[in-house]
Every structure is written in C-alpha cells, then in structure tokens.
Simulated assay, not measured.
Amino acid sequence: MGVYKNRLITGVRPKDEEKVETLREVIMPNDRMGDIPGEYREQHLAFLEQYRKLESERKRLGLIGLKAHVLSTLERNPVLVELAQGKMDGALSFFTGSNSFIIESMEELQMPQIDKVKMLVRELLGGDISGHADDHVERVALLAERFASECSEPVNLQEVLLTAWLHDVDDYKLVGKAQAEKLTNAVNIMAQAEVVNSLSQAVLENIAAIGYSKRLNGRQPQRLAGQIVSDADMCDAIGAVGIERALVYACYHGGRIFDPAVWPNVNLAAHEYNADGNTHDTDGFINHFFEKLLKLKGLMLTEPGRIEAKNRQQIMVDFLSHYFREKNAPEWSEFLEEYLRR
C-alpha cells in the first residue's frame, strides 16, 4: 500500500487508485493500523516514512508533482514509451516551439545538483554585504519557482532553479567585468555539481542575458526559464526588499542618501550606468529609484512578473511620496509626479 500511496507524490494513476482500495479492504478493513497483520506492519510503517519524506520533497520542489503526473500520463501512451526506450536515457522529451520541456525520471527529479549548487553559492556569496548575498539569490529562486508555476507555458524547473541560484555569482559588481563576461564561477560550480552539459549550456545562456545593464545594451533572455529568473531578479530589486537593498548598497559604497541639489539622470546610457563597474556622478539612494528601480516594472517579460512588479512598484511610490513630504522637499514631490506620468 505504501508503494501506491507514494503515487500521491507523482500523480495518481487510475489503476493505482483501484489497487489501493483493493488492498485497503483486504488488510485494513476498518481503516485502522491494528488491522494490519503483525508481519507486515513494520513494512507498512517503512512505506509511510518514505511517503512522508517524498511529500516533504514535493513541497520543497513545487512543480515536481506536476511534472511526474505528466510523466505518468505519457507512460500510458505506447507510442511515446516506444520512442523513449533506449534513446533518451530514462527521460521523455517533447518540444513546443523553440522551448524544450523535459520530464526526467523520478530519480533525476530529486535534483541533487541543486543542493550542491546551493551549498557552493552560499559559500561564495555568504559574506557579501553589498545587497547581493545568498539571501537575495534564495529569494530570487523562490520567486522564480512561483512564477514558473503560474506561467501558462511549460518550463524546465531544474533550468529555472539553476539559473536563479547562479545568476549573481559572476555579477560585475562583485567580480569585475573581465570575470563577469567569462561566467567563471557559474561554469566551475556547475562542473563541481556535475550538471549535464546540455543543461549547463542552457543555464549559461540565461545568465549571460540577465541583468539591468544588459537590458540597457539591448540584451534579454530568450529562453522562458531565463525570462522567469530575470523577472524574479528585477522584482527582488523593487518593493520593500528593494528599498532595503538599495539603501544597503548605497551605504556599502559610501554614497549619498539624498541631496536635494543633485537631480537624477533619468536617461542614463549603459556606459554611464556601469562605467568600469563604478558609480556615476548622480548616483545615490534616492536617485537610484529614478535612474533604475522605477523603470523595472516596464521590463518584465512574463505575466506573473508583471503582476508582481506592479504591486512592488506601488510600495516604492508610496515610500518616495512620504519621504519627500517628511523631508519638506515639495519640488521632489512634483518631480516624482511628473516622472510617473511619462
């Protein structure tokens, strides 16, 4: 029974439901543990413990149950089974347009590579105090997983999570431009985690196109997994957490918080925004809202991202409105209103 009960994790098949009911009537007619013969009780308890662990894993990974449910459906199609046998190493793959949606075997759905990647990323970024620490990366991963579950199109969850956890390990603000372009840390981490080459290349393609400065240069992710992570990353830069991160970053660099005499450059070009990885002349905590943060809502690539960004945008607008009023800076209040009308 425990074996079939575990199908609740992977997507219950009709024939399994029938078997569970038949077994239940035979060994647990009154639906009590005491009904189970003594020689089978220990085995049943072991099955239940396995089920508990699998359910915990399902909750942590979110979309795994959905993926496996699709797998169980595909398993019943003789043509697809025959196509997969001996050719795809235990995986069923089908393609929709330019996006590949890969349903892997249940062992692979445990995604051990993710745990290894998490550990290595935390070791690398755990000491960062510039606003790009591992807590930021973890928030992006959780938000990206949520966006993936809300998207109308299928997406490879493993690609989403790997991209999310690795998207900042080669950020130019942390490692400099030369290493950032090579994605050295991402390559090394995935090699240590033994991520398969096809998946590794997809993740690298995503990371190479994620970031505000890259958007200023006309680059953006083309794969859905990359678009999801891009939206999650930008959403973590706005809203209440975004306000906190912007303040931490300004303090870390010894920058100004607010100077009423220094107005933001709302039309910063890419070379001005990140010239040699340094801050620009008008950079500062408050100016950063106008030079970048309030623009991010318009850069979302997915519908879940657009919905989340709209909510977080309002939090920033409310903060700035209160801030300028309490700072007795009516000219800045007017500037904010004019900026939002554009």
Results as ranks from 00 to 15, higher is better:
Glu159Val: 11
Ile243Tyr: 02
Glu291Trp: 06
Ser198Arg: 09
Val229Glu: 05
Val262Asp: 09
Val169Tyr: 00
Ala148Ser: 14
Ala178Gln: 10
Val203Ala: 09
Gly254Trp: 08
Ser200Pro: 04
Thr163Tyr: 02
Ala250Asn: 13
Thr282Asp: 13
Lys182Met: 07
Val155Gly: 03
Glu194Tyr: 13
Arg215Asn: 12
Gln179Asp: 12
Ala209Ile: 01
Pro221Arg: 00
Gln179Thr: 06
Ala208Met: 07
Val175Tyr: 05
Val175Thr: 09
Thr163Phe: 01
Ala178Glu: 12
Asn217Leu: 12
Phe258Tyr: 14
Gly254Asp: 04
Asn188Ser: 13
Asp168Ser: 14
Ile238Leu: 01
Leu247Ile: 10
Ile238Lys: 03
Thr163His: 02
Leu199Ala: 08
Thr163Arg: 01
Pro154Val: 06
Thr282Tyr: 04
Val266Gln: 09
Leu204Tyr: 06
Val187Lys: 15
Ile189Val: 14
Gly226Val: 04
Pro154Ile: 05
Arg256Glu: 13
Ser200Glu: 12
Phe290Pro: 03
Asn188Glu: 15
Gly284His: 07
Ala270Trp: 03
Val155Leu: 03
Pro221Trp: 00
Ala246Arg: 06
Ser152Ile: 04
Asp170Tyr: 06
Ala269Arg: 09
Cys151Thr: 14
Lys177Tyr: 11
Ile189Pro: 00
Leu166Pro: 05
Asn274Pro: 01
Ile207Asp: 02
Lys173Glu: 13
Glu205Ala: 13
Leu268Gly: 07
Phe289Gln: 08
Gly239Trp: 04
Val155Phe: 03
Gly255Ile: 01
Ser213Pro: 00
Glu159Gly: 04
Phe285Cys: 11
Arg146Lys: 15
Ala246Trp: 03
Met234Pro: 05
Pro264Gly: 11
Ala270Tyr: 03
His167Asn: 06
Lys177Glu: 14
Asn188His: 10
Arg215Trp: 14
Asp276Tyr: 06
Tyr172Val: 07
Gln220Phe: 07
Asp281Leu: 11
Leu166Thr: 09
Lys177Gln: 12
Lys173Gln: 15
Gly211Ser: 08
Trp263Val: 11
Val262His: 02
Pro154Leu: 08
Asn188Arg: 15
Ala225Lys: 02
Trp165Tyr: 15
Ala246Met: 14
Ala191Gln: 15
Val203Pro: 01
Asp283Ile: 00
Val196Met: 12
Asn287Val: 11
Thr282Cys: 02
Asn217Glu: 15
Asp168Pro: 00
Glu150Met: 13
His253Phe: 13
His253Lys: 14
